[in-house]
Computed example of a mutant assay.
Amino acid sequence: MIVRIMGEGQVRLDDSRLTELNKLDEELTAELEGGDEAGFRRTLTALLDAVRALGEPLPADSLEPSDLILPSPEATLDEVREMLAEDGLLPG
């Protein structure tokens, strides 16, 4: 799967890694719902760091269609709330 981190670029991530990332997605969703700014910032950073570590960056000039779009590290609570699906940022 191709994951885009807004403002950074794309990463190729094996679908099997979603299970690992869903725990962070669930934490992030709970922090958003509770308005926990510090927890949100910490978990968003951890989620993006995990995607970067587990995935393989695509070349900057690559224009693959993204299967998943994640917010930038600077995104606000409100911006990420607008991006959320029923089950969080990640499918599953």
Results as ranks from 00 to 15, higher is better:
Ile69Trp: 01
Pro65Lys: 11
Ser72Ile: 00
Gly88Cys: 13
Met83Asn: 03
Leu84Cys: 14
Leu58Ala: 08
Ala50Cys: 09
Arg81Asn: 12
Thr45Arg: 11
Leu70His: 07
Glu86Ser: 14
Leu77Glu: 01
Arg42Asp: 08
Ala85Met: 11
Pro59Asn: 10
Pro57Ala: 08
Asp78Thr: 08
Ala38Tyr: 01
Leu89Ala: 10
Ala46Phe: 03
Asp61Tyr: 09
Glu79His: 04
Leu58Lys: 12
Thr45Leu: 03
Arg41Asn: 10
Gly88Val: 07
Pro57Asn: 12
Val80Ala: 11
Pro65Met: 10
Leu89Cys: 06
Leu89Arg: 02
Val80Gly: 03
Leu84Thr: 10
Glu37Asp: 13
Glu56Asp: 14
Glu86Gln: 12
Pro71Gly: 06
Ser66Gly: 06
Leu84Asn: 12
Glu79Gln: 15
Glu79Thr: 00
Glu79Trp: 00
Pro65Glu: 14
Gly88Pro: 06
Leu77Asp: 08
Pro65Ile: 10
Ala50Pro: 05
Leu48Gly: 07
Arg42Lys: 15
Ala38Arg: 08
Ser72Gly: 12
Val80Pro: 01
Leu63Val: 15
Leu77His: 04
Glu74Gln: 05
Met83Glu: 00
Glu64Trp: 13
Leu63Arg: 13
Pro65Asp: 14
Pro65Gly: 13
Asp78Ile: 04
Ala75Ile: 01
Leu63Pro: 00
Leu63Glu: 11
Leu47Glu: 00
Leu44Ser: 04
Val80Met: 06
Pro59Cys: 12
Arg52His: 05
Leu89Tyr: 07
Thr43Val: 15
Ala60Pro: 03
Pro65Val: 13
Glu64Phe: 14
Leu77Pro: 06
Ser66Val: 10
Asp49Asn: 11
Glu64Thr: 09
Pro73Gly: 07
Thr76Asn: 00
Arg41His: 09
Glu37Ser: 07
Leu84Trp: 03
Ser66Arg: 11
Ala85Asp: 12
Ser72Tyr: 00
Leu84Gln: 10
Leu70Pro: 03
Met83Cys: 01
Arg52Gln: 07
Ala85Asn: 14
Glu79Arg: 02
Ala38Ile: 05
Arg42Ala: 07
Phe40Lys: 05
Glu74Val: 01
Ala53Tyr: 01
Phe40Ile: 07
Leu68Lys: 14
Gly39Thr: 00
Pro65Ala: 14
Asp36Glu: 08
Arg52Cys: 02
Leu63Cys: 05
Asp67Met: 11
Thr76Leu: 00
Met83Gly: 00
Leu47Phe: 05
Asp67Val: 07
Ala46Tyr: 02
Leu48Tyr: 07
Glu79Phe: 02
Pro59Leu: 09
Arg41Asp: 07
Leu70Phe: 04
Arg81Met: 06
Leu63Ser: 14
Asp61Met: 08
Leu58Trp: 09
Leu58Phe: 06
Leu77Ala: 05
Leu63Asn: 13
Arg81Val: 04
Leu48Ala: 10
Leu44Thr: 06
Asp36Thr: 05
Pro73Thr: 04
Pro71Val: 01
Ser72Glu: 01
Gly39Arg: 00
Ala50Arg: 15
Asp67Tyr: 12
Ser66Gln: 10
Leu68Pro: 08
Ala85Gly: 15
Asp36Arg: 13
